[in-house]
Structures are given as structure tokens and as C-alpha cells.
Write a protein that binds this DNA or RNA. Structure first.
Lengths: 324, 324
DNA sequence: AAAAATGTTGCACAGATGTGCAGGGCATGC
DNA sequence: GCATGCCCTGCACATCTGTGCAACATTTTT
């Protein structure tokens, strides 16, 4: 039994071949599950489950071309208004089981494939959106990649990899992975300094700063992934609001001017901060949702990102609202 | 009503948006067709048909990662043996409704996406395989492309675009399209010369010779597309066999040495021939099937192509058989 | 070695999906 | 104005697909 995936996937090499064969017969040739079963001499149920497996682990990818006429207009307008190099606007429809963040991440995976080239160093942030991106990316867009986590990865005990994008992305791309062994927000400045000073962390931070591509997202201030993943108490959390936070970028709470606000959390955040990424040539922000509009607008205005992947409604909001 | 597709597709811009929305709700969000229908306030049947339409016209693409362990070995071996720059081996399974050629074309579409870059000139041959490639390609891999047909396009009356890859490819990619207004094989050398001398043909031929990428296929000598598409009589056809033909490349019947054989057909073939493509840096041969092995081997040996997309069984045969 | 936990398989069945057909709208032609 | 042909729509119904469950197999723990 050999591992692929995040290191904890239970699928054998042999099964992988079988999975691909089943997927081929079903999706490319258009046979029914029963026909596939007959041809391979296994039961229909097994075929059904193998297909589910193949979809789940990304061996089968379904991509959609989004030809919204409006989409192009929105994209051009966004690029013009915020001086972006490129942008992509996907549908805003979400459901109970798939959040808007996941939708954006899924489309982002389709879009950034065209940006990734052999040997690139990809610095990545964190959260539901980038997690979905990692899960939906084409595993062989390029070779010899290196994925670097820009933030600490360790969360409160369980759900370790529920939001972690870096390790998922790396294992799916067969890339080397550098990460920062520590939490996202430490209990004290002293701990933060100690963690940042570790050789592994130093290496990751240096590599991230000189990356070719940065994948960024923005955390809202409501039920954000960060809040769910850390042991921050609610009253502490709301204190960021009082201090003028409008969102969270790379683990730092940023204010209306886009700068990290003056708040203890920001002094205890591990890893690379927003001001340290300007040397990365392509910085793609993947985010959307009504409660993130303000933060996205500010992040783009500050030039933290030079590319944006978002949804129609967020795009409209970004273009409409304009507080003087 | 605006056209996309080969110029004869009946779908409006508005319908395109609706199609994408339906596909999004169904494939990305995972709603059932009934749920999609409810959300958009249309009937389930319409949703069902819209999904079929979206799949048919390539708005929805299903891609499969083929992780055959053997695949890698075969690819490396092919590259070594024939001095290829790259190769790809897909499953050999076909069905009544989807031929092996179409399978290879479909996988080829996935693979060559990574090769195509903005502004490229793509010279394309012809046949079932390349037709399937055109139908399965991601329509927005790149912009400002130019597709050039290397051969004449006009066939016997109907089924005009049944095998024509160039116009399909061009319209799907939103590319400019140069083609040669004439048949594939003329009734006489004189007609051939006249057709080749036309300004449009001259332009296409010149452009094709200096293309960045060539998509090639090989016709077998049995029930080939060429035979089905031309008005060649059976006895004439079999005379190519007598003259030592082992396959058809770019409309020319080639012999064991890879050179076009001495046969009237070859003097009456319109467009760019095999010997005229060596200036094209990337020449991808997409072909497979037991009856094409010999021809593929010869074409690769002659360096007509420097990349190969084929299936497992053909790959094995190419590596095994080796007549001294 | 027995027990417990965990993963796998086949099945029944509910639910989701695709399609031949009939009726209806809409344009073109007479 | 009426007939004709074409396409689109909705439906009934056959087929295909997914899943909770129970039995079985396999691994891990005690």
C-alpha cells in the first residue's frame, strides 16, 4: 500500500490504474456503470464507488467554461479600476453543501493552471477558498514545483488539514513543500519570535518572499476559517473589530487603510505578512462574498494583489461602492 | 443570434450564459437537475437538455488524469527510441460509439493545452482523430491564435465538416482560420496546381510552413476517413497498396521508407506535404490502432513528428516490433 | 487468541436521469 | 389564410445511479 495525497490517502498504485480505467470507460467512452462493470468483470456497485473515489481525489476533473457576456465586462472593469494584470469572475451561485468560497476556489484552480509553469515556487496562504483550490487543481500542470506556506499551519488539535492549503496543494502537485512549524497566531510575542526564528521557518519565509506566485485569500470577520481554526476567544476576536479591522489578510487584521491594525494579534501572527510580498511578481487574490467586499477593495487598492479571482456579485459590489 | 461552433450552431449568447449557469449549479455545486430547475424556475427536462447541450458543445469538459504506472514507462521508452521531445499514452479501450481515434483525439486535446500559447500559429491536418481533438479542446487555452489547414477541405458534397479539424478548431478557439479552398485529392495534376496557385491557398501554405505547432495524424489504408471523404474508387484506392503504401500522412501515401510513394494520387494531393513541415518546431502526431502501427513507426523514424500521442497498445506495438 | 475497530462488498430500493413521443408554437411557402 | 415543416416543450416511463444497511473480511488492540 503506497501513499499519495496528503500522506494519509489509502489508495494503492494498482487501484489508481483501475480507477483511471473505470473513469475512462465511463466518462470518455460513455458506457453505463453496468457496462463498465461487465467489461471489467466487477460489480456495478464497485464501479459506482470507484467513480466516486476518482472524482473525490481529483483524478476526474469537470471544468466549465464560463462565457458570461457580463463576465468579460466585469473583468475588464476590475482590471482597469484596480490596475490588475488579470482577473476572473465566476458565477455567484452557492449551495448548502458548497460555499461561495469553495466555488471561487474551484474556478480559481481552473484559471491558475495557465499561470503555473515548471519549476515555479508557489507561496500560499490559507483558508477554505485556497483549500478548495488545492483540491480542484489539475495535478500535472507542471513539474518540479515548490509550495511554500506563508503562515503557520498548526491549528487546534483536530481538523489539522481542514483549511491547510499548502500541504494539500503540494501533495497533489507532487511538489516539494516548505511549511512553518507553528500555529497561526501565537499566545505571545515571545513565542512568535521563537517560532519565526526556527531554521525551518526561516527557510520557508525566505523562500516565500522570493516566490514566483502567491495565492492569497481574505478572511472575513464573522465565522471565518481563522476563527474556527484558532483557539481565540470570542471577546478577543471582537476586539479586532473595535480596533478597526475590516478583514484578515495573511493572518493579519487589516484596517481601512489596508495596513495591519494596531492589535496584539498582529504582533503574534507567524509567518510572512502582507507588506512582505511585493517582490512576488504574480499575487493572486481569491476571495468573494458580501462581507469581504470592503477588505478586497482595500487589499487591491494597496496593491497587495495584482490579480483577482472572485464572483459576479462581489465584482459588481467592488465596482459600485466607492467611498470618497 | 450569434454563431459559435462551426458556424452552424444555433445558440444565442443569452442561452450560452444560461447553459453555463446550469452547468455551474449541476457540476460545481452538485445540485440535482430537479433542484437546478427549481432554482431557475424552468422544468427538469429543460435542465437535462441544457446539460447535454453544454457537454456536447464543450462548455463542460471532463478531464481524466491517467496515472498508469506503465504509461510513464511507455512514454519514456517511446521518447528514447524515436528521439521524441514528448509523448503521451492513453488507455486503449474504445466502444461502439467512440472509436479509438476519437479517444486519442480527446486525450490529445487535454495534453496539447499545455503546449499552446498566445499568438501561436497552429497548422492542422485532418481526420477523425483531429476532429475529436478539436471538439474536446479547452476553448480558452490561449488568445490570438491562428489555425491553418494544411490540406484541402472540400470533400464530396455532404458531411463537409465531419472530418475537417481546422475550421472546428478555429471557431472553438476563437482563432483566425486559413484554409485551402479545394479538395484533398484532385482529379488531375493540372487542377492541383491551379488550386495550389490560388492566393488563398498560397497564403495558407506559406503560413502553415512557418507555423509554431503542427497537429498531424495518420490515415490507415482500410476504411480511412480519407477514403470515406473522397470520391476515390475502390480499385484506385487499392492500387496504392500495390504501389507499397503503408499509410497516409498529410494526404500523401507513404511507403516503407517513409517517403511518399510513386503514385498518381500523390501528384494530385493539395496543400503541404510531409517533407515541407520540418521548419515547424513542434510536430505532434496523434494516432493509434493496430493498422496504423507500421505507418506511425515509419513517420517517427523519418522525424516527420517530434511528439506522439497514442494509446497503450499501439505504444507497446511500436516498441515491440522492429523489423531489421 | 479473542475482541474490537475498521474497511469492503453486495444488495434492495429510492431517487435521479435520459428519451421517444405527442402536442403546440412559429416561421416559411404557396 | 392555410398548409407545411421545423423545432421546442413537457410528459410517461424505462433505465441508470447513489446509498443505508447488514454481512463479511481485515487489521489492530487487548
Amino acid at each position: 500500500m503506497n501513499k499519495t495525497g496528503t500522506g494519509r490517502e489509502y489508495r494503492t498504485g494498482v487501484a489508481d490504474e483501475a480507477l483511471a480505467r473505470v473513469a475512462h470507460l465511463y466518462y470518455i467512452l460513455g458506457l453505463t456503470q453496468a457496462e463498465v462493470a461487465a467489461r471489467l468483470d466487477i460489480t456495478r456497485f464497485k464501479v459506482n464507488r470507484m467513480l466516486a473515489q476518482a472524482r473525490k481525489n481529483g483524478m476526474v476533473r469537470i471544468e466549465i467554461n464560463v462565457p458570461y457576456v457580463e463576465r468579460f465586462e466585469l473583468e475588464r472593469a476590475l482590471e482597469r479600476k484596480f490596475g490588475l494584470e488579470t482577473s476572473f469572475v465566476c458565477p455567484s451561485d452557492a449551495s448548502d453543501s458548497v460555499s461561495l468560497s469553495e466555488v471561487i476556489g474551484t474556478y480559481a484552480a481552473m484559471v491558475i493552471s495557465e499561470t503555473i509553469e515548471d519549476g515555479m515556487v508557489i507561496a500560499t496562504s490559507w483558508g477554505e477558498t485556497l483549500r478548495a483550490l488545492a483540491l480542484a487543481i489539475n495535478p500535472d500542470v507542471a513539474r518540479n514545483l515548490c509550495v511554500v506556506a506563508m503562515l503557520g499551519a498548526l491549528t487546534s488539535q483536530t481538523d489539522l488539514d481542514k483549511f491547510d492549503a499548502a500541504s494539500t496543494l503540494a501533495s497533489r502537485l507532487g511538489a516539494e513543500c516548505l511549511y512553518i512549524p507553528g500555529p497561526i497566531i501565537c499566545d505571545s510575542v515571545r513565542t512568535r519570535d521563537a517560532i519565526n526564528a526556527q531554521p525551518a521557518a526561516q527557510r520557508a519565509i525566505a523562500q516565500a518572499r522570493s516566490a514566483d506566485l502567491a495565492l492569497l485569500s481574505i478572511g472575513g470577520l464573522g465565522m471565518s476559517s481563522l476563527r474556527r481554526a484558532t483557539i481565540i476567544r470570542d471577546q478577543d476576536y471582537s476586539s479586532t473589530l473595535a480596533a478597526g479591522a475590516i478583514g484578515n489578510l495573511l493572518g493579519r487584521f487589516i484596517g481601512k487603510d489596508g495596513k495591519p491594525i494596531d492589535h496584539p494579534f498582529n504582533d503574534r501572527a507567524v509567518g510572512v505578512g502582507p507588506e512582505e510580498i511585493f517582490d512576488i511578481p504574480r499575487r493572486i487574490l481569491c476571495a468573494g462574498g458580501p462581507h469581504k467586499v470592503e477588505a478586497i477593495r482595500v487589499a487591491l487598492t494597496c496593491n497587495y494583489a495584482n490579480a483577482l479571482i472572485t464572483d459576479v456579485q462581489t465584482a459588481r459590489a467592488l465596482l459600485a461602492e466607492d467611498p470618497f
